[in-house]
Design a protein around this nucleic acid. Structure first.
Lengths: 215, 215
DNA sequence: GCATGTAGGAATGTTAACATTGAGACAAGT
DNA sequence: ACTTGTCTCAATGTTAACATTCCTACATGC
C-alpha cells in the first residue's frame, strides 16, 4: 500500500471534458449532433480555450469527431465501427488477461472483485453499463501496463456508447445475466487459468456484439 | 483506384506538431528536455494556441509528457517502457497481420512491397528507421481498421524513438539484415500463411528488442 | 428548372494580453 | 547544517478580441 497518492491539479479542460462526456452518455447530446464551442463555453461559463482542449481530448477518446473549420459532432457508431471496437477490444483484452493471470497481486484481484460485486447494487441498465465499464477498467488497471491502459482508454468511451445503445434492445433477465457473466470472469481470473479466462472474456464480448447484430 | 482524394486543410497546429516531431527525431531536442511553449511559439512564429494543441497531439502520440503547470518534456523511454511498447505492438500486429492475410487487396500488398523495396535506397541508419516505420504503416493501412491504425499511431512515434536509440548499437551488417527481414515479411504476407507471417513478425520484434536489452 | 455566382452570417482558427501557478534563490530561525 | 518562510520571476492556464472559413440563402444567367 502507498501511503499517499499524487495530488495534482486537473485544470479546467479536464473538467469541461468530463461535463461534456457525461452529457453525451446521458443522452443530452445525440449521436451526430453538433457540439458548438461558443454554446458550450457559455453554458459552462468558461472561455473557448479550455473547451477546445476538452473537445480534442474527447476526440482522442473517439467520442466526438472533428473536421477542419467544421467543428465537433458526437460520434455515431456504424455497424462497422462496432465490429472494429469488438475486434480491437479482443486484441487488447487478450494481452490484459494474460498479464492479470501472470502477475496481478491479490489486492488487484480484490479490486476487480469489488467492481463485479458493485453490479448487485445496480438496478437501472444505465447503472449496469457504468459498472460493466468499471469492471474492465479494473482489469486493465491490474494488468499494470500503462500503454495498454491508454489503448483501452482510447476506445473506452466508444464501448460505453455502444453498450448504452444495446440497452435499448435488452431483455428481462438481462441485468442478472450480466452479473453472472462477470462473476464467472472474476472466478476464472482468480483460478489463474489463462485459456479458460480468455474463452470467457471472448464469450462476454460475443454476447454484447450479437445482441446488436441480431436486434 | 479513387480518382481524387480528400482536399482538407490541415491547420497550424498540425504543422507545428510535425515540426516539433521532426526536431525530436533529429535529436535537436533530447529525451527529458523541456519544450517551452513560449520558445516554440517564437521559433515557429505562431502564437501559443496552436503550439499547445500541437503538444497535446504529441502527448497522445507518447512523444512528450506533460504535467499540470509544468509544461511538456520529451519522453525518455525506460527499459520497462520499451517492454510495454514491444508487448502492445505484438498484440496489435497479430490482429493487423490476420486482417491483412484475410482481406488485403493486391493493391495493398503492392504498397507494402513498395515500402520494403524503398529500403534498398536507404544508406543511413536514420533513413532505414524511417523506412521500417513506413513499412509497418503500410501493413496497418492494409489491415483496413481505423481504430487499429489509431492504436498504432498512439505508439508509432515512441517505436520510432526506440529504433533510433537502437541505431547507436547497430553492427555492420545491420542494414542488410533489416532489408532481408522485411523481404521475408512481405513474402509471408503474399503467401497468405497466417501462422508463418505471425512467427516472422514476432521474430522481427524480438530482434529489435533483444539488441537493446543486450547492448 | 437547373446550375452557377455571390453576399451575409455564424462558427471555428488564431492571436495577444491578463491571471495563476510553481520552482529556485535567499534569508532567518532552530 | 537543516529546515522553514518569503520573494521573485518565468512559464503555463485562461480569457477576450480579431481573422478566416464555410454554410446558407438568394439572385442571376442559361
Amino acid at each position: 500500500m502507498t501511503k499517499m497518492g499524487p495530488a495534482r491539479r486537473r485544470g479546467l479542460s479536464t473538467e469541461v471534458a468530463d461535463e461534456i462526456r457525461e452529457a453525451i452518455f446521458d443522452g443530452r447530446y445525440a449521436p451526430g449532433e453538433a457540439l458548438r464551442e461558443t454554446e458550450l463555453s457559455e453554458a459552462l461559463e468558461v472561455s473557448r480555450g479550455p473547451v477546445r482542449e476538452a473537445l480534442q481530448k474527447l476526440e482522442r477518446e473517439g467520442l466526438v469527431h472533428t473536421e477542419w473549420h467544421r467543428g465537433a459532432t458526437v460520434t455515431a457508431l456504424s455497424l462497422q465501427d462496432v465490429a472494429e471496437l469488438d475486434s480491437l477490444r479482443g486484441a487488447l483484452e487478450v494481452l490484459a488477461v494474460r498479464r492479470v493471470v501472470d502477475q496481478a497481486t491479490d489486492a488487484d484481484l480484490s479490486l476487480i472483485e469489488k467492481t463485479a460485486a458493485a453490479m448487485d447494487r445496480a438496478d437501472t441498465p444505465h447503472e449496469m453499463v457504468r459498472c460493466d465499464i468499471a469492471f474492465h477498467d479494473a482489469v486493465y488497471a491490474a494488468a499494470n501496463h500503462s500503454r495498454l491502459q491508454q489503448a483501452w482508454e482510447a476506445i473506452r468511451s466508444q464501448v460505453h456508447l455502444f453498450l448504452i445503445t444495446r440497452v435499448g434492445v435488452s431483455t428481462d433477465g438481462y441485468l442478472e445475466q450480466i452479473r453472472e457473466e462477470h462473476r464467472d470472469l472474476v472466478a476464472a481470473l482468480r483460478l489463474g487459468n489463462v485459456d479458460g479466462a480468455l474463452k470467457l472474456f471472448a464469450e462476454h464480448r460475443r454476447h454484447a456484439f450479437d445482441v446488436l447484430t441480431k436486434g
